[in-house]
Design a binder for these strands. Structure first.
Lengths: 257, 257
DNA sequence: CAGTGGTCTAGACCACACT
DNA sequence: GTGTGGTCTAGACCACTGC
């Protein structure tokens, strides 16, 4: 092919995307759309690089670069010889993908799975700060959950969650309790909501009386306050989570680079 | 070229590296060696992709993939039209690359630079835990620094640092005080030590009397304890830093993906 | 203008997984 | 063996920087 139209802004079949950008970015956007729309579900394989190249009328190398970026963002997982798969929270080895609390001694594995106890699960109305975090309006319906995570029978994490009411219609304490595995896996399979990215703000605080009682610590114990906002595709906030972590036997682990 | 030797384990000029690995990984290793040895200094440009391709007798694309990874690890910075540069801490816009504490309201910029106060700077001997963190032996000489960082004239961070004695011979409180800019920039320019990666363990604690006094807080105030180990190339630990952060007006910000 | 990184293509071959 | 992702090459052209 000697007349190569390449990546002018009106070149190939592959530009529904508005602004000018490299071809592989446009392809990335198209793949992203298919991920959002649910054309390929979490855990499933997406079409092979050759297939996608044919579909978008570009070379395999261009598709490859698009998928490289999606893979770097953990939206997709490549497996040599098998294919490329939509990332999911429902896998053993990525179980607590967003939980950075680790035991001081021993690995996450040796500690075994957490025991989950649902304390409360009710529908309510978004307060001003919850609404802001979730891009809702004050008073919009939200689902509110409180639970405790224990390791080796020691209550270690107390979490309050707020979920927008609409996408999580039908979520009950019972369904939460019955579900084995990470909460985000349930969100995927039952509600089609896939958490893709999150931000955390961490502070040191003292618990109030109720919080202290639930965690079994003295009221003046210093605890880690971890406020997380989790996002789906499009950077749409889909969960606000306020956690209180005991850090006498665990620590929040972070890697900087 | 139809007889392409490609990446067998004894193929091109580019395999001093022992084990089998893709060619671009071998190239990456060679570039890494040159970075370590100081052949190219922080802030300087490394040779162009074409030059490196010629030097290692591989194609430009292979060098490109090697540099892509180094760039993703923040060891090197690409600038279109200009070249590829060795990453450095001595730049305005990457000033506090490893400091994740942010003001609750307003940006890091609007807050202005931190005021630094050296409280103490002395030579001492590594205790058992310091030695373990820095891969030294107990009793080995270390340099110990204590300082306070203030924002808007409010003492916010109290830091204790331990540095291995040998690489930092000649570091004094005076040189620390006189230096404008990030501490890691001084380490680079004065001692040739380039911090490349770090790990942090975060806990909630109460300060002791002296710590509380230095930060101007009550003794029972909850504070963030941030223990950082910073590494040079080769994953060699070169600094242990224990920070106490006030989180009444700031928070530790982390992005998960 | 020349030099740099950035994008795109086409084709070859390697490593791995399944059947 | 067939099909997948992974590596490597060679050559073309684009976009940015600075002389």
């Amino acid at each position: 092919m000697d007349s190569n139209p390449s990546f002018s802004s009106t070149s190939t079949d592959a530009q529904q995307t508005p602004a000018f950008s490299p071809l592989y970015q446009q392809i990335k956007g198209l793949i992203l759309q298919s991920l959002q729309s649910g054309e390929w579900k979490p855990g499933e394989a997406i079409p092979s690089e050759m297939d996608l190249a044919a579909r978008y009328r570009v070379s395999q190398g261009t598709v490859r670069k698009a998928i490289d970026e999606l893979s770097a963002e953990n939206l997709v997982v490549r497996r040599q010889g098998k294919g490329t798969f939509v990332a999911t929270h429902a896998e053993q080895h990525v179980q607590y993908r967003f939980l950075k609390l680790q035991p001081d001694n021993g690995s996450v594995q040796s500690e075994g799975p957490a025991q989950r106890t649902i304390i409360d699960c009710k529908r309510s109305r978004a307060s001003a700060d919850v609404a802001r975090a979730l891009s809702l309006r004050s008073g919009d319906p939200v689902l509110q959950v409180r639970r405790v995570l224990s390791f080796a029978n020691v209550a270690t994490i107390l979490e309050d969650l707020w979920l927008p009411g609409a996408p999580f219609k039908g979520l009950t304490a019972e369904r939460l309790s019955n579900y084995q595995g990470a909460m985000y896996a349930l969100f995927e399979t039952e509600f089609g909501v896939r958490m893709v990215r999150a931000e955390e703000r961490i502070r040191a605080v003292n618990p109030d009386a109720e919080q202290a009682q639930l965690l079994g610590v003295a009221p003046q114990s210093p605890l880690l306050s971890v406020e997380r906002v989790a996002y789906t595709y499009n950077d749409t906030a889909m969960e606000l989570r306020r956690g209180l972590y005991r850090t006498d036997t665990h620590h929040y682990h972070n890697v900087l680079s």
